[in-house]
Design a binder for these strands. Sequence first.
DNA 1: CCTAACATACCGTCCAGTCGGAATCTACGG
DNA 2: CCGTAGATTCCGACTGGACGGTATGTTAGG
Lengths: 207, 207
Amino acid sequence: MAPRTQTPRRKTRGSYDPEQTRQLLLDSALELFGDQGFHGTSVQEIVERAQVTKGAFYHHFESKQDVLSLIHDEFLDVQREAIERILAEVDSPVEQLREVIRESVLTVTRYRQHVAVFFQERRYLTGRPAADVKRKRDKLDKAMDDIVIAGVEQGLFDARITPRVAVFGVVGMSAWVHQWYREDGTMSAEQVADDLANLALDGLVVR
Amino acid sequence: MAPRTQTPRRKTRGSYDPEQTRQLLLDSALELFGDQGFHGTSVQEIVERAQVTKGAFYHHFESKQDVLSLIHDEFLDVQREAIERILAEVDSPVEQLREVIRESVLTVTRYRQHVAVFFQERRYLTGRPAADVKRKRDKLDKAMDDIVIAGVEQGLFDARITPRVAVFGVVGMSAWVHQWYREDGTMSAEQVADDLANLALDGLVVR
DNA sequence: CCTAACATACCGTCCAGTCGGAATCTACGG
DNA sequence: CCGTAGATTCCGACTGGACGGTATGTTAGG
């Protein structure tokens, strides 16, 4: 095996661009974490993909976990913004839920790797970052709970179903999309989003 | 740091019970994989939990991956048996799907660790075992596809929804249960199973 | 010329898998 | 029933490599 010395990028002929380097490292880490998992990915792999060296990595980030936590944060922010926007724009619980499902599915297809990392590598977060993530997630869950509860109170949603379970069902359905959806042209994300929203709201059995 | 010598179990006063040892190792591995992930768990941890040593582990299994693949197989067999039984017992696609969802949810609650391992550590399977798992999973997916397609053809299911998406929605909803359900007495697995089956079949919106 | 932005060599640790041997079990001849 | 040879089951020290992180040197920008 040749010695571990590789030829770093040394961008546009001798010029630093720290923000680009940082983003490149984040993108590489995201891609690799999504494909191989957190423990399945070494820092060496990340820097090779970004065509820099470990020095650059540890200059921009405190640790490998640090990067994992940043990925989590980014995804949670996207989710939060989406749900806040919908709650402000739409009134009826039925249409709120429909929009939340549609938006969730679209987000999942757009941020596929984020979702994969988020739901599969969560356990490797510890300490402060783990607590932060939990807090933010609980907030999102509660927002959805409130939608369903309001719908039940207004007689719009079936009162026999436990709201908590309904929310988890909807979340699971949407999150699961990352396990199978691929943009290979045979099915648009919009189509999937509509189908799943219809499934959750109207059910599969014809009326 | 003290040397890595530990006191193995040496069961009921000097007597080998290979089958018990094997099962103990499998159980330990399942528990640890479920909690800490495949790469997050060392063989040393597995054997310590089973109160044996690495010699015993590598006597019973070829590798760490070997154990992972056995866990996958066991879960897939349980799923297959369940769906075969339902297809043989029930006729109507509606009731078939209802039973499949109910049974899936119950299986997920009973085999929580299996499910966690199955869906989060799949990528660490390679070669033959990975191909075997994929083949078996495709078979299960197809069986569910057929149920939905039959239902649509008989005019029982909403024809606007792509069957494929409906199946993935149902599977996601059920599989997701492992992320949140805990047997702490506040909600029975039966209740969850019924709620999710109702959600998928009749939807959340009142008729 | 000082500091940010890297590069590179290196360290301590951990870990999957190995190996020689010890303990135990089984089969069988006497 | 006894003895014993061979196979099975398990022990535990060990290895070679990989990996996260560090320390120190080098280069570019203000």
